[in-house]
């Protein structure tokens, strides 16, 4: 599953945090642009921000398909796109969430609960022969968790895709980080 990790073996991935006006069709505009220009999206997460007028889209892009510079410049051309931050993993905080249903006999259940506790995950639901757990963490953490669960047999899983924000510079104020201004194009 390490292929799911944006910073694992494949360093061709990069994270874009895109602040957009929260308007109908904005996600379609972004995804249509990627499709039309032949850019590959590795994962995409979108939700409204603290300001109701704006949404933030976190996109993990595949740089094998196009240069990052072209992707960001083309994205900038969308009228609804207000600001794009390229998030360097060294200077950002990142999280992903996974939910997994694993086969679990009565004997195995204890092992899985223990494993989940070690990873600081949560038990969401317990069935007769399966158990559903969740974990949020860095993508590599989630990869490791999945590897550990694999031996029991995974029934279903769903990852959210990465969400990320820039790591706060000690000198930076919260309002500077939040300001939607500053787009040059």
């Amino acid at each position: 599953m390490s292929g799911n990790n944006p910073y694992g073996q494949d360093s061709q991935h990069h994270v874009l945090s895109v602040l957009v006006q929260n308007r109908p069709g904005v996600l379609a505009r972004v995804s249509a642009l990627f499709a039309r220009r032949g850019y590959n999206i590795f994962s995409l997460a979108v939700a409204p921000t603290e300001q109701a007028d704006y949404s933030r889209i976190t996109i993990v892009v595949d740089l094998a398909s196009a240069p990052l510079e072209q992707m960001t410049k083309q994205l900038f051309k969308l009228i609804d796109v207000v600001r794009i931050s390229e998030l360097d993993p060294r200077h950002s905080v990142e999280r992903e969430l996974i939910m997994v249903t694993v086969k679990a006999t009565a004997e195995q259940r204890g092992q899985i609960v223990e494993l989940t506790n070690i990873f600081e995950g949560k038990i969401l639901s317990v069935g007769v022969d399966a158990i559903t757990v969740s974990l949020d963490g860095s993508p590599s953490n989630i990869d490791d968790f999945m590897t550990a669960l694999n031996q029991y047999g995974i029934v279903e899983s769903q990852r959210t895709g990465l969400v990320a924000l820039p790591k706060l510079d000690r000198a930076a104020t919260a309002s500077a980080a939040k300001s939607p201004k500053g787009k040059a194009s």
């Binding site: 969308l78 009228i79 796109v81 787009k183 040059a184």
Partner: peptide, 8 residues
């Protein structure tokens, strides 16, 4: 109304 549109 167009905060994302400021052509240089």
């Amino acid at each position: 109304s167009l905060p994302g549109y400021r052509p240089n």
